[in-house]
Amino acid sequence: MINVGIIGGSGYTAGELIRLLMFHPNAKLDFVYSTTNAGKPLSIAHHDLLGDIEMNFTDEVNPNVNVVFLCLGHGKSISFLKENQFANHTKIIDLGNDFRLTADANFEGKQFIYGLPELNKTSIKNANYIANPGCFATAIQLALLPLASDGLLSEDVHINATTGSTGAGVGLAATSHFSWRNNNFSHYKAFEHQHLGEINQSLNQLQASYNDELIFIPNRGDFPRGIFATLYTKSKESLEDLVAKYEAFYADQPFVTVTTTNINMKQVVQTNKCIISLMKKGNRILITSIIDNLLKGASGQAVQNMNLMFGLDETTGLHLKPSGF
């Protein structure tokens, strides 16, 4: 069994990790660390776990676990790792943004691998330290990687993507308060979202010559979870050829489905799936990419990475069905 520790156990991503790991056939939850809830049952913060697991939060860390997931706020993983040492055999999966960029990937001799399985699966299998991708970054990269792989990105890409309120975390802010968010819609961080760096980095990994602009407008949606991203750019390829390229690129990727039908977010919420829909109008291709921001965009992908790191089938513990109604 893989003994698992979770750091920053009170947030949404930690709650999803607990839900996945307590039913994972090859994992055993050793501790869930939270200084604010130490000694209290997990169900105090994660009400959906009531009756499923008898475990309390702790403010003590077992440094000898096989793997630890860092579910801390962005920028806090570095400070935590400086203050807490783990055994040499302990693998680390960081769900924050501290180590995603190549310039930040080496920390005190620990080399973090960017954990997008559809791009870096071989490296992930041999890694001890993983930087889990961001949620918007996952949806957008999966929409564009097949084009980059064939050197077909030659224009600016226009991106409009909407995320659920859980993407803002559990901390209350003016724009996450129910009274503001309900029956409302807004954009934020237009043209400068922090995920653009990792997206461009992955595209250049496959197509080094691409230096056009990703014009990204992120939106706040009036729903709890999910990401619905639409992207368009110019392409000389026929729709049939593009579909064939996407299907070939994702042929061995169990969580990605390619279609030409209209898709909706309920098809992926509560799952680790990404569905990509392709449409063509004149010389423009429209790509729609949908994921659950807390699963394929965070905790589900983290478990997928854990599976790969420990030599398991990457789908282990992730056979999840969406709720269509």
Rank of each mutant, 00 (worst) to 15 (best):
T260M: 10
T260P: 10
Q253H: 01
V243F: 12
K245Y: 13
K234A: 11
V258A: 05
Q253S: 12
K266V: 06
V268M: 00
V258E: 09
T260G: 13
D252Q: 10
Y232C: 10
V258N: 08
T233W: 07
L231Y: 05
N264W: 03
G221T: 01
K234P: 13
I263F: 05
F228K: 10
F228P: 11
S235W: 14
D222P: 13
F216N: 15
I227K: 00
A244Q: 06
D222F: 08
L239N: 03
N219W: 07
D222V: 03
Q270I: 10
Q253R: 07
V256C: 02
Y250K: 06
A244V: 02
F223V: 03
L231F: 01
T271A: 07
P254C: 04
T259Q: 09
V268D: 01
T259V: 08
A244T: 09
T257R: 11
I227L: 07
P254V: 00
M265N: 14
S238I: 07
S238D: 04
A251P: 15
V269H: 07
T261R: 13
T233Q: 14
K273D: 01
A251N: 02
K266C: 10
G221D: 09
T257G: 15
F228N: 14
I215S: 06
Y232W: 07
A248R: 11
Q267V: 10
T259K: 07
T230R: 12
R225T: 15
L242C: 02
N262M: 11
I275K: 01
V256L: 02
Q267S: 12
T259L: 06
Y250F: 07
E247K: 13
I217Y: 09
Q253G: 04
R220E: 09
L231P: 15
R220C: 12
L242P: 13
K266N: 11
F216A: 12
F228M: 07
L239D: 03
I263K: 01
S235L: 13
I217P: 04
Y250E: 00
S235D: 07
Q253P: 11
E247Q: 09
L231S: 13
N262V: 12
E237V: 14
K266H: 14
V256N: 02
E240D: 06
Q270H: 11
K273Y: 05
P218V: 08
E237Y: 07
Y232F: 15
Y250H: 00
I275G: 12
P218F: 03
N262T: 10
T261K: 08
V268A: 00
L231D: 04
K273F: 00
V256M: 02
N264D: 05
P224S: 03
D252M: 08
E237Q: 09
Y246E: 01
I263Q: 05
Y232R: 11
A229R: 02
P218G: 06
T260I: 05
K234V: 15
Y232I: 11
E240G: 03
A248I: 05
N272V: 08
K266W: 07
K236F: 13
N272E: 01
T257E: 06
T257N: 14
N272W: 00
G226Y: 00
T230M: 12
A244C: 11
Y232G: 05
K236S: 15
Y250R: 01
V258W: 04
P218D: 02
K266Q: 15
A244D: 08
V256P: 13
P224L: 06
F249M: 01
T257F: 08
